[in-house]
Design a binder for these strands. Structure first.
Lengths: 222, 222
DNA sequence: AAATAATTTAATCAAACGTTTAAGCTATTT
DNA sequence: AAATAGCTTAAACGTTTGATTAAATTATTT
C-alpha cells in the first residue's frame, strides 16, 4: 500500500507557500538535484539514485515527496517549460512593441537566458518529442500563437509590403532558430571550432546585436 | 566466458562482402531495427528486447552478432554520422564551387535528406552531447574544417569586402541552423502551427529556394 | 510532558534489463 | 554420409532500478 502523499504540499510548493521550513528545503533539494540531472541526461538516462545522491538525501525520500520518478519529472518539466516560456508569452500579444522590437527583445533575452543554461533547449526538444508532455506545451503555445498580436503584426507588415509574402512560420523558425540553435550544438561547436567557453559566450553576445540586423535583411521587401 | 564473436564478419559487413547470404540478412535486420529504435528513442530509452522484436529475431542473436547493446549502438552511430557527413565532406574542400553555390547545394541536399529522416538531427545532437562518441565527430569535422577551402573562401570574401567582417562561425551556424533547425522541432511545429505533414514538407521545400537568398541578404556587405 | 504527526533511514522487493548458457537446428565441408 | 562450423532458440542468470516497507527520529500539537 502507498504511504499517504501530501499532494497539498505539492500545490503549496508551486505557489511558494509552505507551513514547514524543513519540508520545503528537502523538497527543494530534491527538485534542484532532479532538475540538474534530468536537464543533463534526460528522463531515460537518469536514475533516481543519482538524484538522491546529488541531493544528499535517502532514496526513499524521493518517492515520499514525489511518489514516482515519472511524477517528479512531470514537476520539473512543467517548471522548465514555464520558466522557458515566461519570457515569450507577454511579448507575443504585446501591442505596444513593433515586430522589430520584439525580435530584438526576444533574441537578446533568450541568449542571456541560454548562456546560463545552454542545455535546456536540447532537453525540452528531446523530451517533448515522444512523450505526451507536448500537450502541455502545445495547448499553451498553440492557443498563444493562433490569433496572436505578433501574427497579426506579421500579416500587416506583409500586406503593407514591408515584408515579402512568406509564410509566417518561416519568420518564426528563423528568429527562433538563429537564437537558440547554436546552444543546441554548443559543446560540439566548441570542440570543432576550437572555441573556449569565453569565445562561445562572446559569439553569442555578438548575436544579440546581429540577429535583429539579419532578420531585417532577410525579410526586407523584394 | 564469451562466445567467440566473428569480428571478421563485422568488417565484411562494412564493405558489403559476406560469405553467407543469411548472415548478412540477419545482421541487416538487427541493424535496421536498431537504427530505427535508437534514432527514435535514443540509447538510454531503447531496450534490446524492443530491437529484437522489431527485427523479428531472438534476443540472444543481438549479442551473438554485436556482443553488446553498447557495441551495436556504436555501429549505428558510426554509420549514422557517416551517412550524415557524406554530403558535407566533399563540398567543404571543393575548389570549383563558390561559397554561394555551396550554400545552395548543401541546404538543398540536407533538406531533401531530412525530409525523409527528420529525427536524426535531434538524435545525433542528443547522443553526442554526453558520450565520448563526439570524438568520432570531432576528429573528423575538426580536421575537416580547420584549413578548409570553405574557410578560406569565407576569409577571401571578407577581405574583398563582399562579406561583412564577422566570425566565420556566425556564417556556419546560420547556414546550418536555418537548414536543420526546423527539423528538430518538426513535431512541435506541426502541432503548434496546425500544419499537416504535407504542409511541413512544402515549407521545407520552399526553404531550399529561400535559404540561399536569406544568407545572401544576411551577409551582404554593410 | 505526552501524544500525535511528519520526516528520514536502512533494508528489501519485484520487475526490467542486458547478457549468457546450453542445446538444437541448418548449412557447408570433407 | 559423417563431421564440422555457423546460426537460432528457449531459458535463465545476475544486476540495476524504481518503488515500498517498517522502524527510528524529529517536529508539532495538545
Amino acid at each position: 500500500m502507498h504511504r499517504i502523499i501530501r499532494l497539498a504540499d505539492l500545490e503549496a510548493m508551486k505557489t511558494g507557500k509552505s507551513n514547514k521550513k524543513s519540508t520545503l528545503s528537502t523538497e527543494q533539494k530534491i527538485k534542484e538535484a532532479a532538475r540538474k540531472i534530468f536537464h543533463e541526461k534526460g528522463f531515460a538516462a537518469t536514475r533516481t539514485r543519482d538524484i538522491a545522491e546529488e541531493a544528499g538525501i535517502n532514496l526513499a525520500l524521493l518517492n515520499y515527496y514525489f511518489r514516482s520518478k515519472e511524477k517528479l519529472f512531470g514537476v520539473i518539466m512543467f517548471e522548465t517549460l514555464d520558466a522557458f516560456l515566461r519570457t515569450l508569452i507577454p511579448v507575443i500579444n504585446d501591442g505596444t512593441m513593433t515586430l522589430e522590437e520584439k525580435v530584438e527583445f526576444l533574441s537578446s533575452a533568450y541568449i542571456d537566458q541560454l548562456i546560463v543554461e545552454p542545455q535546456i533547449v536540447l532537453f525540452i526538444m528531446s523530451e517533448i518529442k515522444n512523450r505526451r508532455e507536448d500537450s502541455m506545451l502545445n495547448s499553451r503555445i498553440k492557443a498563444l500563437l493562433s490569433d496572436s498580436v505578433i501574427l497579426e503584426q506579421y500579416r500587416q507588415a506583409v500586406s503593407e509590403g514591408k515584408f515579402p509574402d512568406l509564410n509566417f512560420w518561416h519568420f518564426m523558425i528563423n528568429v527562433i532558430g538563429l537564437t537558440i540553435f547554436p546552444f543546441m550544438g554548443a559543446s560540439t561547436l566548441k570542440h570543432i571550432g576550437g572555441l573556449t567557453d569565453d569565445d562561445f559566450v562572446s559569439l553569442m553576445q555578438e548575436r544579440k546585436r546581429l540577429i535583429p540586423v539579419w532578420v531585417r535583411a532577410m525579410f526586407a521587401p523584394a
